[in-house]
Design a protein around this nucleic acid. Structure first.
Lengths: 145, 145
DNA sequence: TAATTAAAAGATATTTTTGTCTTTTATTGT
DNA sequence: ACAATAAAAGACAAAAATATCTTTTAATTA
């Protein structure tokens, strides 16, 4: 297993792809997204549907419809996606799975984990959804395979 | 979901508990371990069985039997447990799930993730299984709930 | 209004993870 | 040898994650 769940991996890749295509009000169909990020079509459908409900991406049905991200959305941090999918536990919970773990009642890895989680949080909060648009369009960065 | 799988969380807690009880050749039964780390008994049984096969812990059957960790084992890094359970992918794979992700063909998060993974690896490799024995015995650190 | 398009929603299937229960095997002590 | 103990092993079940397929709803265009 990877660091994030498959669901979260697909979500991150898909959102970044949609972002990179959303510059001039363009919309992309789910078939294109699934193809470009190499994910199962209908499974991705559910994921995008949820992200859409959360307001992280936008969509319209019908001809010329598809998914897109509005300018404000491009400025949101990646953390929003991760939290929407993995929940807050992933970024804030105890590394050893203890629910009462705290500074007063610490697990053996409490301090070490706090530092690593802090770094992960920092990274996910300072990085925005639209941050990679240019390099994705240029083809310098990859989202496929 | 947490950072590690339940299996890995139980494993880390159990191994640390067994370690803390292994100072003077003492052995602990699985019932005691499951109770002390608050995990499902038989599920933990499978986990310890696997760790035993990997040589990360030792066990003997029969009266006065149980699980223990030999002096060399106490010096091994936590990374050995995590790798035994989560696989190398967890500590080395691409954060976005791409199998061809590399410095030459990077995903958008390649560099950021590398730094976080490096820190996690460093921590898990410098921390040993037996490192918390004293504080666990003193009750300064917790493994339960 | 009708046909077409594309996401939303629902139903179902598969796989993996997590968990429980029972039987077997190995060890110890009598 | 026999009984008791405790892990190993196997069978099975429940829940969650992953995946596929079909139907419905909303939007567009002709």
């Amino acid at each position: 297993m990877g660091f994030f769940s498959k669901t979260c991996e697909y979500a991150l890749r898909a959102v970044m792809y949609i972002a990179s295509q959303s510059s001039d009000g363009k919309k992309v169909g789910i078939k294109e997204v699934a193809d470009k990020i190499n994910s199962p079509l209908h499974f991705l459908g559910k994921i995008l549907q949820n992200l859409s409900k959360e307001g992280l991406i936008q969509s319209t049905k019908g001809p010329q419809g598809g998914f897109y991200i509005n300018p404000d959305g491009l400025k949101r941090p990646l953390a929003d996606i991760v939290i929407a999918i993995e929940g807050t536990q992933f970024l804030n919970g105890c590394g050893m799975g203890l629910s009462y773990c705290s500074q007063e009642n610490p697990c053996p890895l409490h301090d070490d984990f706090k530092e690593i989680r802090d770094r992960l949080n920092l990274m996910l909060h300072k990085t925005t959804i639209g941050q990679f648009n240019d390099k994705l369009i240029q083809g310098v960065l990859t989202l496929n395979k």
